[in-house]
Write a protein that binds this DNA or RNA. Structure first.
Lengths: 158, 158
DNA sequence: GTTGAAATTTACCCCAT
DNA sequence: ATGGGGTAAATTTCAAC
């Protein structure tokens, strides 16, 4: 993977596709001031470089029955690298865990977990997380409501 | 907005588009066992109903210079609804705050914040968050690494 | 850029209920 | 009559040259 160096047009392409991942290449090209073919070449290059990792529809979680979002703050007994990796490997196998971030400070990991309801969540928590080896403490907080959920990162408007 | 009732085909469409938001409608139609036109009608209906909220390219944050992800746990002095709304309105104006979830328990909000570096983050934190009215306490944790970051929710395979 | 191939979109028809 | 799927044709987009 090569070093990524982007000019202004690349940045605008990234911003536009983050905002609307289904924008047609023709519209994208117009917006950034190119004709379609070079614009598409840039998009493909950005994908190959890994600047664009994929495209995803943003679903309403409730539409698929996931009415509960929970944040779990996990502390481990051992923070040896192999133990950290083992925990990450564990959460990778739990589909309801959508995100796993390793943090500094007393809390080792924060997980974002979705579940249909409180019962399902408690089931996942007690059978898969709190009983896992090396897990010292799990503190969970239910999401009451989400007021902001933007994708990715801010993009400079130009 | 009407009540959402989905059959198996709708669920499969949602799952496939969450996984690949740029899948062509003809491929999508093949995968779910329809021809293109009725498939597209279903997609448009799902968009209108709000089951699909949008499509986004997943960018590598580092590509745009955002090398730091931070979680901020915020406690307010007053949890009156108007004060909660006021805080949500404040964070809505800060582009680096990508997510804002209201939680139960002592922590009122968890924010996901991105920044180019620690200096920029401290600047945002001290000028926009900790000094805001009604903010009692902000505890921040830096992300060391992110081992899992899946979009949306699990989708039943069929 | 240009052009052939492919995808999208609209309109219309059919079938089932 | 209504709703969902299929067929066909026009337009747009894609991708190779």
């Amino acid at each position: 993977m090569e070093k990524m160096r982007f000019d202004d047009i690349d940045v605008r392409i990234l911003g536009l596709l983050q905002d609307n991942g289904r924008m047609t290449n023709v519209e994208l090209a117009e917006r950034v001031g190119l004709t379609a073919p070079p614009c598409l070449r840039r998009v493909r290059a950005l994908e190959l470089q890994g600047a664009i990792n994929g495209y995803h529809a943003a679903l309403d979680p409730g539409a698929l029955g996931y009415n509960l979002t929970v944040f779990a703050m996990v502390s481990l007994k051992s923070q040896a690298e192999s133990d950290l990796r083992a925990f990450e490997a564990l959460v990778a196998t739990i589909p309801e865990v959508r995100e796993c971030h390793m943090l500094n400070g007393e809390i080792d990991f924060i997980l974002k977990i979705v579940a249909p309801d409180l019962q399902s969540f408690q089931q996942i928590l007690t059978t898969k997380l709190t009983t896992a080896p090396n897990v010292e403490h799990v503190k969970t907080s239910l999401t009451i409501r989400t007021s902001k959920a933007l994708p990715g990162v801010p993009v400079p408007e130009m």
